[in-house]
Amino acid sequence: MIAREHVHLKSPGASRFALAPIKKWLLIGTALGFLGIFILIPLIAVFTEALKKGIELYFAAITEPDALSAIKLTLITAAIAVPLNTIFGVIAAWGIAKFNFKGKNILITLIDIPFAVSPVIAGLVFVLLYGSNGVLGPFIEANNLKIIFSVPGIVLATTFVTFPFVVRELIPIMQEQGTEEEQAAITLGASGWQMFFRVTLPNIKWGLLYGVILCNARAMGEFGAVSVVSGHIRGLTNTLPLHVEILYNEYNFTASFAVASLLALLALLTLVFKSFLEWKTKK
């Protein structure tokens, strides 16, 4: 009796499975096709274009002084913006996730602004604020500071644009974890710092790293906001994405694609690292 019921239960399932391969491959095929056209082919194109005139030209393009200076500036920018946003992100996420206060939703909305507005507008805002004709212009000139068309402006714009990545990643994780473990740590005699480093941080570490990686990828790749504030001074205020654009506009395609391939490699590395983290978190 029971056995027969089993058979009954199975048969509709089996017919569904009979149809499944077609649907399955249709879906997978569509996804792969889309991926190929929009992501894989362009990516291959970048590398083939970069290497078209031989490996020597490729290396020459990425080791010439202007390219090296762009690499350096990109790394410096990320090295400042990412730690800043990491520290701020942890603090803000903690405040939002673990405390109740008035205006919490407004704060969350404010944090999302850099995602919501176009990076170009973000760049313009900085020019209007810190430029020589800007609101803070006289003060900056009086103190002999330089922000717009120099490195501080690029760092500022990058920090602004990449600012929500870490917070956004952490808020749901911290909310889900609640405060009980932390309260337990306190009742066991832990100080605030001990609680943070021994209980809070280990609980959010994978989410935090994930946020940092995304933040870093964007910090290195940011074009719009940086383009507005940088002034495109070769060898001085050019980041990698800006350098690619300049080379391209000069019809120097091989060099342009060579430098672009560096950025692409960076993105690929980041993604590999991210997948590794995802795999590790699931484990």
């Binding site: 473990e181 309260q183 337990a184 832990a190 021994r198 280990p202 609980n203």
Partner: peptide, 28 residues
Amino acid sequence: KVGFVFQHYALFKHMTIFENVAFGLKVR
């Protein structure tokens, strides 16, 4: 100097049972 036991245990998920129990002594 109170010991507090929570309804939902609040054990430290990333630590072994041994480390959980040792926590209060290690943070002194």
